Computed example of a mutant assay.
Amino acid sequence: MRATFKGVAALSLALALAGCGNYSHEVAKDGRSAGQLAWPSPTNMPSMHKGGTFPNLDNLRQVRSGLDKHQIAELIGYPHFEEGVWGVREWNYVFNFRKPGNDEVTVCQYKILFDKDKLARSFYWMPEACSALAEEPRPEPAPIAAAPAPSPQNITLSADALFAFDSAGLTDGGKEAVTNLGAKLREHIAQTQSIRVTGYTDRLGSDAYNQQLSERRARAVMEALVSDGVPRTKIVAEGLGEKDPIKDCPDGPRKELVTCLAPNRRVEIRVD
């Protein structure tokens, strides 16, 4: 009788340790699915886990496929239900989440299925929306800084390369230079607000003559740009005569002085 009692007691203990076993039905050997997922009722939790726990989110985010039960327990603890010891291929938890700045608590159930070797293979949430609460928060996108306004572009063309001496008519080389400039301006014409063409002369000759010559040369460049497709509405032409010289040359033989003052004879184009 005593031996029989011991045998019955051992069997009863084994059944108690086995407990409920798997809640879900037909858990696959590879642990990646089940014929039917079943969720234990939170009201059936042992008193020690009553109400669930607030998980350490950093640890919860480290739970992944391939961890054994000991590693899972190190991260998020042992399951919250009496699922038994032997043959158990799933663990169930009840986790509580609180959003930053919000006292409201969201209660979620979490399930892990293990393969035949007791390695974690698949993970489930109820409701499924709870999975978002455990995800790594995405960093806020950096604000897109407004692009700085492009600085004005200044282009200087030598008047000696554009015009014959003492003339406001463009030479063949001058026409080619302005045509190349017009092509570049048209590439960015949508972003261009204004184009100012300014003519300059050297100090040789009278102020009145130099003023007129600088204006005529500026208009000649403007008209050539318009002919090449640059909108007239965006171009302004002006002449400043001998103002704002780039180079100062001492008086001397005229030929040498004309050569020295060449940088002052120019047409400047400012693109805003």
Rank of each mutant, 00 (worst) to 15 (best):
D172W: 04
D207H: 03
I112T: 05
S131G: 13
K234H: 10
N102Q: 13
L57Q: 11
D160G: 13
T192P: 07
N154E: 13
L67N: 13
G35I: 08
M126W: 10
R266L: 05
L225S: 01
L213Q: 07
N22R: 04
G229C: 00
Q71H: 10
N102Y: 03
E176F: 07
K111S: 06
E223Y: 01
V105C: 04
R232D: 15
P137G: 07
N44A: 14
Q153P: 01
E238S: 08
L75D: 03
N154Q: 13
R89N: 13
D207S: 08
H25Q: 12
Q153R: 14
V88I: 13
V258K: 15
R266T: 05
A120T: 02
R61L: 04
V230A: 00
D160S: 14
A132F: 09
D30Y: 02
P253Q: 15
A218S: 08
K255I: 14
N264T: 07
K116E: 14
W86L: 15
S47T: 01
C249A: 14
G229P: 03
R32E: 06
E238M: 07
V85P: 05
A220F: 05
G19E: 04
Y200C: 03
A38Y: 08
K111A: 04
Q212E: 11
K6T: 06
S167C: 04
Y209K: 05
G239V: 00
K116C: 07
E256G: 10
K175P: 00
A132N: 09
F163W: 05
N210V: 02
G35N: 12
Y110F: 15
R32D: 00
L37Y: 06
L213H: 06
W86V: 15
V230I: 05
S33A: 14
T156K: 12
G241T: 03
V105L: 02
R186S: 00
N59C: 08
S158N: 11
K116V: 09
M45Y: 10
M222P: 02
P42F: 01
P250I: 11
P46E: 05
F165G: 11
I76W: 04
P40Y: 04
L11H: 04
Y23Q: 11
G66K: 10
